[in-house]
């Protein structure tokens, strides 16, 4: 099982340098929004205590974890071409097909967050929690990438339709604004405050921010971890269900 996962992840990672066209935007979109949003908003949004470039950095990292991460498209492609069938006649464990790609996602997110972090540091972001905090920051972001990835995989496997998977990412972008992306909770309109309280991203962002702004805040980190874990549990359940559906119907049923 572990070897199967390595093999599957290996295939995905080998393909990466050959998929420059899809990786480039995944790298530059978050950097672009970081630079532009900081430049336009730092004076009105800084509010004295917290520099906006520090407050906003975790948002960019979370975006990286989502745009750059998913190899779910690989599944859609494999289903569309019928290559998925060819994988299914091998004795590979079905779940290894899924988890192998997710491992690749994890690696990609970890790699992509480094340049974004560097841009932040160039902008003057200082981690209160030090180098160890930076590592934990990357780890949390990558784990989040993994937890979130379950959703596009679930859709990819269920529908076999690239358009659906793309719209899942669009949907995510809306969700990413229904939280404390730009300003602290207290400054949100009451309805948005209410929505953001129910948005798991809020708790992840708080955890990530605590590493930058406050240093080591055990409670914030724990809550962030639990949030990632909870989201992961839901998304993995959905993804595994879709996988067993897809294995049952093969490549012939596509929406």
């Amino acid at each position: 099982m572990v070897r199967d996962m390595q093999t599957v992840a290996g295939r995905a990672l080998r393909a990466l340098p050959r998929q420059r066209t899809s990786l480039t935007p995944a790298l530059f979109t978050p950097i672009f929004f970081y630079v532009v949003n900081v430049a336009s908003l730092e004076h009105i949004a800084s509010l004295g205590q917290v520099p906006f470039e520090e407050f906003y950095l975790p948002v960019s990292i979370v975006v990286v974890a989502v745009t750059g991460a998913s190899r779910a498209g690989t599944f859609v492609g494999d289903i569309a071409t019928g290559y998925f069938d060819k994988l299914c006649v091998t004795p590979v464990r079905r779940s290894a097909l899924l988890f192998g790609l997710m491992i690749a996602d994890f690696v990609v997110v970890a790699c992509l967050s480094v340049p974004v972090l560097l841009i932040g540091i160039v902008h003057g972001v200082r981690f209160e929690s030090g180098v160890l905090g930076i590592l934990l920051f990357i780890l949390l972001a990558s784990l989040w990438g993994l937890a979130f990835a379950g959703f596009p995989y679930a859709l990819a496997l269920r529908t076999g339709n690239p358009a659906v998977v793309t719209s899942a990412f669009t949907l995510f972008f809306s969700v990413a604004y229904l939280t404390t992306a730009f300003v602290p909770r207290d400054l949100l309109a009451p309805w948005l405050r209410w929505v953001s309280d129910g948005n798991p991203l809020t708790y992840l962002l708080e955890g990530l921010r605590s590493l930058v702004i406050d240093g080591w805040d055990g409670q914030a980190l724990l809550v962030a971890m639990l949030t990632v874990f909870g989201v992961g549990l839901v998304s993995m359940t959905l993804a595994l269900r879709s996988l067993s559906y897809r294995v049952r119907v093969g490549t012939q049923e596509v929406y």
Partner: peptide, 11 residues
């Protein structure tokens, strides 16, 4: 070897 089978073009 199936009648219609895709291969992964990236490899």
């Amino acid at each position: 070897a199936l009648q219609e089978s895709g291969l992964d073009g990236m490899q």
